[in-house]
């Protein structure tokens, strides 16, 4: 009866698979190479900056306050770019998973 040998192991795997048992905690599986991190960080900074600039320009055009809100949101965009890079290394969702 070879079937019985790995039974407990397979039962445990099946239970984990169906969500009956808690799976062992695993980290994120994004590309962890230096290049992967570098490219992601670059994209995150630039995209936050772009969103900040676009919001600033739209608000300026709406309220007629050129260039003040543009300057404010440029700075805020840069800050959230830095925040995005910080989140890249310390995802906040991992700290308290519930």
């Amino acid at each position: 009866m070879n079937e019985r040998d790995g039974f407990e192991e397979r039962l445990r795997q099946a239970r984990t698979h169906q969500g009956l048992d808690k799976p062992p905690e695993k980290g994120g599986a994004l590309p962890q190479s230096p290049w992967g991190y570098g490219l992601r960080a670059g994209v995150e900074v630039v995209s936050a900056l772009v969103v900040g600039i676009v919001i600033g320009l739209l608000l300026d055009r709406w309220l007629g306050t050129w260039p003040w809100l543009f300057l404010v949101f440029f700075v805020l965009g840069s800050v959230s770019g830095v925040l995005n890079v910080y989140r890249l290394f310390n995802p906040r969702s991992r700290s308290r998973t519930q």
């Binding site: 969103v51 919001i55 959230s80 770019g81 925040l83």
Partner: peptide, 11 residues
């Protein structure tokens, strides 16, 4: 935080 949230679309 709001800019960071919207930057997901762009990135």
């Amino acid at each position: 935080e709001i800019i960071s949230y919207f930057s997901r679309v762009v990135s």
